[in-house]
Design a protein around this nucleic acid. Structure first.
Length: 275
DNA sequence: AACAAGACCTGCATGC
DNA sequence: TGCATGCAGGTCTTGT
C-alpha cells in the first residue's frame, strides 16, 4: 500500500503521459473493486480529455474536461502500468485506452483499491472518501501547534493517531514509524502528551520524512512500482521499518530495533532512542 | 466521542 | 513436496 510518497510518485509518472490525451475506451474486467464502481463509470469517462492529474492524501484525482474527476485509491497492492500483457493478467481490472494509442492498466491483486467519480471540482469536498480527511502533511497546516491541538485529550498511542486520516491525511504505517524515529518519540506514548517541543519535532519529522521519500521516488516493498515500472529507492532509507532485531542506526546506540503490534498494525522502533 | 477489533482479498515467506 | 500459519503499504464498519 502505497502511502503518500508512493502515490505522489505515481502521480508524477502518470501526469505527463495522461494530460492532453483523450480516454478513447474504458474496459472493466471486474466491476467490483473494493467497492462497486458507479454504474455509468465507463460512459462518464469515455471520450473525455484529461486535463490534470492531482493528488489528495493517498488519492489520485484525474480531472477530465467538463469537470468529471476520476478518484483512484491504490489500496495495498494497486498499481498502474503502461505495458499491458496479452492476455491480461488475472488482476488487471481496469484498462484505459488513450487517444495516442497507449494503454493504461490498473492492476490490484488484493483488490483493496477502489475508484469513484466526482462530478466536478466543487463536489470534491463532499466526496464520501475525501470529506473527512485532515490536513495535507506537506501543506502549510502542519505545525506543532496543530498537532498538539488535534491530539489533545487523545489517549490512543501517538503511532495510532498518526494513522488517523482525519488528523493528517496521507501517513501510513511505514512513515508513521519513520517519523516517530526521527522525532525520537516512542510510538507507545499517549497522543495527548505530544505538545510543545515534542509536537514541533514531530511535525518537522513528518514533513522531512515524506519529502525525503518523494525525492527518492518513493519506497518499494513487494507490490509497489511507479507508473513507469521503475522501483523507488527510499526503502534503502528506512531506519526502523521492517528492521526487527537489527541495530539502531543512531551512532553509538547498539540497541536492537523492536517490533510491537499497535491497533493491529506492526510498529518498529528503537526503545533506547525513542522516548 | 474515542477507541478497538473485525472485515475485506490475494500472495508470499516461514515452519513443520 | 504439501499444507498450515501468519504477515503485508489501507479503509470502512461495527460494537463497546
Amino acid at each position: 500500500m502505497p502511502e503518500l510518497p508512493e502515490v505522489e510518485t505515481v502521480r508524477r509518472g502518470l501526469a505527463p503521459r495522461l494530460i492532453g490525451r483523450r480516454i478513447a475506451r474504458v474496459t472493466l474486467r471486474r466491476p467490483d473493486l473494493r467497492f462497486p464502481l458507479p454504474a455509468d463509470f465507463a460512459e462518464q469517462l469515455t471520450g473525455r480529455q484529461i486535463i490534470d492529474v492531482g493528488r489528495r492524501a493517498k488519492y489520485l484525482l484525474i480531472s477530465c474536461e467538463e469537470g468529471v474527476i476520476l478518484l483512484s485509491h491504490l489500496g495495498m497492492s494497486g498499481r498502474y502500468s503502461f505495458t499491458p500483457t496479452v492476455p491480461p493478467g488475472p488482476h488487471d481490472h481496469v484498462q484505459f485506452d488513450l487517444s495516442d494509442g497507449t494503454q493504461l492498466v490498473y492492476s490490484d491483486p488484493r483488490r483493496f483499491g477502489f475508484m469513484d467519480l466526482i462530478q466536478d471540482s466543487t463536489a470534491i469536498d463532499n466526496n464520501r472518501y475525501l470529506k473527512a480527511l485532515g490536513i495535507e502533511p506537506l501543506g502549510n497546516g502542519l505545525s506543532g501547534s496543530y498537532l498538539s491541538d488535534m491530539l489533545k485529550g487523545r489517549k490512543t498511542p501517538v503511532k495510532s493517531a498518526l494513522l488517523d486520516q482525519r488528523i493528517i491525511a496521507g501517513i501510513g504505517n511505514i512513515y508513521a514509524c519513520e517519523a516517530l524515529f526521527r522525532a525520537r518519540l516512542s510510538p507507545r506514548r499517549s497522543a495527548q502528551t505530544i505538545a510543545g517541543k515534542r509536537a514541533d519535532r514531530l511535525a518537522t519529522a513528518i514533513r522531512d520524512v515524506l519529502q525525503d521519500a518523494i525525492a527518492a521516488g518513493g519506497s518499494s516493498l513487494k507490490d509497489f512500482a511507479g507508473a513507469d515500472g521503475a522501483l523507488g529507492y527510499f526503502q534503502h532509507g528506512f531506519q526502523v521499518y521492517d528492521r526487527t532485531g537489527q541495530e539502531c542506526v543512531t551512532a553509538g546506540c547498539e540497541t536492537q530495533i523492536r517490533r510491537i503490534a499497535q491497533a493491529g498494525r506492526s510498529t518498529f522502533y528503537c526503545p533506547a532512542c525513542q522516548r
